[in-house]
Deep mutational scan, measured.
Amino acid sequence: MATADDFKLIRDIHSTGGRRQVFGSREQKPFEDLVDLGWLKRSSVDSRATHYQITERGTSAAL
């Protein structure tokens, strides 16, 4: 179930172009929650960072 923080984060991601790069596993937790909701997808993972991209469902949630 989505929380107020989830909606705040997806709106922030949407307003800044729909993509986010995250460093460190602790910082990934809120983004992984949005992946579980179907609002974000992991577009790539490298040794230092994970890249996320907003989905259509995420765009709808952000509006």
Rank of each mutant, 00 (worst) to 15 (best):
E32R: 07
R42Q: 07
G58N: 00
A49S: 15
M1C: 15
H14A: 10
A2N: 04
A4C: 15
I10D: 00
K8V: 10
G17W: 03
R57G: 07
Q53E: 15
R19W: 14
E32N: 08
R19Y: 14
R19T: 13
S44E: 11
I54Y: 00
T16I: 06
A4Y: 10
R48K: 13
T59Y: 07
R26L: 15
S15I: 11
D5H: 08
T59S: 07
T3M: 05
Q28F: 06
I10A: 02
G18S: 03
D33M: 13
A2S: 05
K8H: 09
F7P: 01
V22K: 03
V35D: 01
V35F: 03
E27M: 09
D12C: 14
A49H: 09
V22N: 03
G38P: 00
L9N: 04
T59V: 14
H51S: 12
G24Q: 08
S15Q: 13
K29D: 05
K8E: 10
D5L: 09
V45N: 08
L37K: 05
S60C: 14
W39M: 02
S43V: 15
S15R: 14
A4L: 12
L63W: 05
T59A: 08
R19M: 12
I13W: 00
V35H: 03
V45P: 06
S15T: 10
I10Q: 00
R48D: 14
A4E: 13
V22W: 03
K41G: 06
E27K: 10
Q53S: 09
T55I: 02
M1I: 13
D5A: 12
T50G: 05
A61V: 09
R42F: 05
S43H: 10
E27T: 08
D6I: 05
D12M: 10
Q28V: 08
R57N: 11
R11N: 05
M1P: 11
T16H: 11
L37Q: 03
K41S: 12
D6Y: 07
D5M: 09
E32K: 08
Q53A: 09
Q53N: 07
T55M: 02
T50D: 04
Y52W: 03
V22I: 09
I10G: 00
E56A: 12
H51C: 15
D36A: 14
V35C: 10
D36Y: 11
I13G: 00
H14I: 06
V22M: 04
H14E: 06
R42L: 09
R42H: 06
F7T: 04
K29M: 07
D33W: 12
V22L: 04
D12N: 08
L34D: 00
P30S: 07
A2K: 04
R57M: 14
